[in-house]
């Protein structure tokens, strides 16, 4: 087992609430590591609506998801949080009072005094297409992500979708696959125009096929696909013979491993008390969209409030012998020093 990473607080989720928690914890001298399944910081703000407006952040009449993420990163910079992206916490084990051993999918191990679950709607997972029986082919010949391109060398590959992932992998795998077909339901793409142009050039050179339609059924056996049955928009049906299928239908949120951590749940949300947003397990907190309590609103501003109160209680676990004096950033020299402005 790899050497555990020791930290005061481990935050699960690097969305706005997880980020602001770093600030509130930092003011009280607690260091944080953050784990997030996405390849970028910002959670739903980054994945679902980077360019869409948010109008209800107090004091900020208008900001985009991307703008809010950048501003929060700037705000928490003095506290030097460490990010572990494209990874997912799988297990949390209580090993002290409180001390937790937290393990991730990628094999990282943390030892932390406090855990803050700021996981929003859960973890983002690739969407599964509604093809009957597709489960039997998954990870054998149907893949929702490409980890090793070599796996597809010399294979007949069918890529389904019209977004950036579909286009990027079409371009990357075109020289490797023996034959590549891109299947999309319409002529327009939701992808970088440059990628679309490059893809169209490959089609014009006869190097790949671009086909309009949607997969309705798979044929094959023992998890190895042989061909996909495709329906055109005029309802006519045809087959595409292939050895591997890569559907790229975006991401969806699933509760994921959160359900296995022994926390009291209600309707797939973590129950917390409202003095410190602690869960049923002392030392584990839940803030933001993932928690529930009487009167809960899934608003970013509520998650910020929850983070501030959480930090007060977390301090007792991290520094059991220190007395906490409440201070304002406006007037406290000691807080201003931490922020690097005094």
């Amino acid at each position: 087992m790899s050497e555990p990473i020791k930290t005061d607080v481990l935050i699960i989720g690097a969305g706005p609430c997880g980020l602001f928690a770093v600030f509130e914890l930092g003011l009280l001298d607690m260091k944080a590591h953050l784990v997030d399944i996405l390849d970028k910081i910002g959670g739903q703000c980054a994945e679902l609506y980077p360019e869409k407006p948010i109008y209800d952040i107090p004091g900020i009449p208008f900001v985009t998801g991307d703008g809010l993420t950048k501003a929060l990163l700037e705000q928490i910079k003095p506290f030097g949080p460490t990010f572990h992206l494209q990874d997912m916490v799988t297990t949390i084990e209580k090993i002290g009072d409180p001390l937790f051993r937290v393990a991730t999918e990628q094999g990282k191990v943390f030892e932390t005094k406090v855990v803050v679950v700021a996981a929003g709607g859960g973890s983002f997972q690739p969407k599964r297409p509604p093809i009957p029986g597709v489960e039997a082919y998954e990870e054998k010949s149907v893949f929702y992500a490409v980890r090793q391109m070599e796996k597809f060398r010399g294979k007949r590959v069918l890529i389904v979708g019209g977004g950036d992932s579909a286009l990027d992998w079409t371009l990357n795998l075109a020289p490797i696959a023996s034959h590549l077909t891109l299947l999309h339901r319409r002529q327009d793409f939701r992808a970088a125009p440059d990628s679309v142009n490059k893809m169209m050039a490959l089609v014009a050179e006869g190097k790949i096929d671009f086909v309009l339609g949607q997969v309705t059924e798979l044929q094959g056996k023992d998890g190895q696909v042989a061909c996909a049955i495709v329906r055109r928009n005029d309802n006519s049906v045809f087959n595409i013979a292939c050895d591997a299928i890569l559907p790229f239908f975006g991401l969806t949120m699933k509760l994921g491993p959160v359900a296995n951590w022994g926390l009291s749940l209600k309707d797939d949300l973590i129950e917390v008390e409202t003095a410190s947003f602690e869960t049923s397990v002392p030392g584990i907190f839940a803030i933001g969209d993932i928690n529930t309590y009487p009167g809960k609103l899934k608003l970013i501003l509520c998650g910020f409030h929850e983070g501030a109160l959480m930090a007060q209680k977390a301090h007792r676990y991290v520094y059991p012998d220190k007395k906490l004096t409440f201070q304002y950033t406006t007037s406290s020299t000691s807080l201003q020093k931490k922020l690097g402005v005094a």
């Binding site: 297409p129 327009d188 939701r190 239908f249 975006g250």
Partner: peptide, 8 residues
């Protein structure tokens, strides 16, 4: 229409 690409 762009978002519908991710629909089923």
């Amino acid at each position: 229409e762009d978002m519908l690409d991710f629909g089923f």
